[in-house]
Design a protein around this nucleic acid. Sequence first.
RNA 1: UCCCCUGUAGCUCAGUCGGUAGAGCAGGUGGCUGUUAACCACCCUGUCGGGAGUUCGAAUCUCUCCGGGGGAGCCA
Length: 465
Amino acid sequence: MRYNVKRSRIVDLLKSEGSGFDVLVKGWVRTKRVSKGLCFVEINDGSCLKNIQAVADESMPKYSIFANLTTGTSVAIMGRLIDSPAKGQKFELQTKDVEIYGKADAGEFPLQKKGHSFEFLREIAHLRPRTNTFGAVFRVRNALAFAIHKFFQERGFLYIHTPIITGNDCEGAGQMFRVTTLDAKSANDSQNASDFSEDFFGKKTALTVSGQLEGELVATALGNIYTFGPTFRAENSNTTRHLSEFWMIEPEMAFATLEDNIAIAEEFLKYIFKYCLENCKEDMEFFDQRIQKGVIANLEGIIKSEFTAITYTEAVDILVKSGEKFEFPVKWGIDMQSEHERYLTEKKFKKPVIVIDFPKEIKAFYMKVNADNKTVRAMDVLVPGIGEIIGGSEREDNYDVLKSRMVELGLNPDEYWWYLDTRKFGSVPHAGFGLGFERTIQFITGMQNIRDVIPFPRTPKSAEF
RNA sequence: UCCCCUGUAGCUCAGUCGGUAGAGCAGGUGGCUGUUAACCACCCUGUCGGGAGUUCGAAUCUCUCCGGGGGAGCCA
């Protein structure tokens, strides 16, 4: 179809100031309704949640083509944008011409006009972006990614790319995916013989479980940095909160303490929530109505509230005195279970809670040890429904303490010589945290399963598409 | 990895005491001048997840394998 009109995005047409002019729309047929000599076709082009309704009657030259369009067909519609005479939409297209790009057989196309279960849609992940819910999810995902960059860029943080293939094993953050060019058998042999000289990198390598250590190296030169990239965990986790491949944001700040870390985490979360509410209004209303009632009010409440920060010791105290019957009894020194986090965020405080100063035994080697020599300067930001959304800490900046912590936890300091060097040469106090990108999308949208906030989820036994 | 639930038409699901399967939607055909998950009528649709067993007879009971979901652990 050749016209002097440029393709318009539906989002722009529906916001149009006036009407009565010709426009060209390209998209996919969502639904169709036919009466005698009159047909309504709704087109969606992904630019927004709403469809635009195209109307034609028998006087339109290509009416039979128009009236025979089926759900899923890709089309170009040329027509006049008019004020709709019927209720339900402000504007509609009075169709003058139609062209089919690609048909979609009505008997075969799996997406119907009606709602589908998310389980079913996961099996057709290649087509699910064409649904209302997933269109909205991916638009919010995009906005959130942009908001994160915007937040850090406005504050002078530099976006740093840390490696995806990493040579330092046993980072302690979880099981790692091996990266090798050896065939499966010799890779296994090598594992036992710990001989990787034949392998591509000449050493044992894996996909990163965190960019933090490398992030620290750069932060101790450039000041404030952040990473935003894919992260991989080979854990056999089967939950609504875990993926084998997910995206993580890790800011790292030189000359910063745990208190600075807490302040920036709170400001950050409020900023990105606000950005999504303001820039994805229509999609957020959809989530509020159809996915989880109250998500908008919940986010608005959080933006206005002040986060509560309590120490681990205080948290244990609250839990012990709560009178709740927990499956895992609470006592100082244990790691907090989901049920404990839930109690704090959902019952006790009913908002995000920051827990700090955890026992050093249950936290990572790089966290700064407090003066009491029992706890470390860690922080977990817990939110209702999801649990831990941010995990961070002030880092141990004392060379000797860090080295002995590594030994305590069974790590070989020689393998981290480059990390230790930052404490040897011009060491500075510094802090940072990690934010799970998908968990944040879950929290914002109210989507229950993490597999439904990433286009093509990777989970144990599942890597189709 | 552990615990629980689940698998019936393309989708969502019903199927009682064990007697060989059904509804809505989708799809097809026809009808209807403005529909909004349009409506009305008619038509089509099944290795009841696979295998084995109990039984005269299994969607239904038992065992087993596979898939899916939820919870837990691990974590973000």
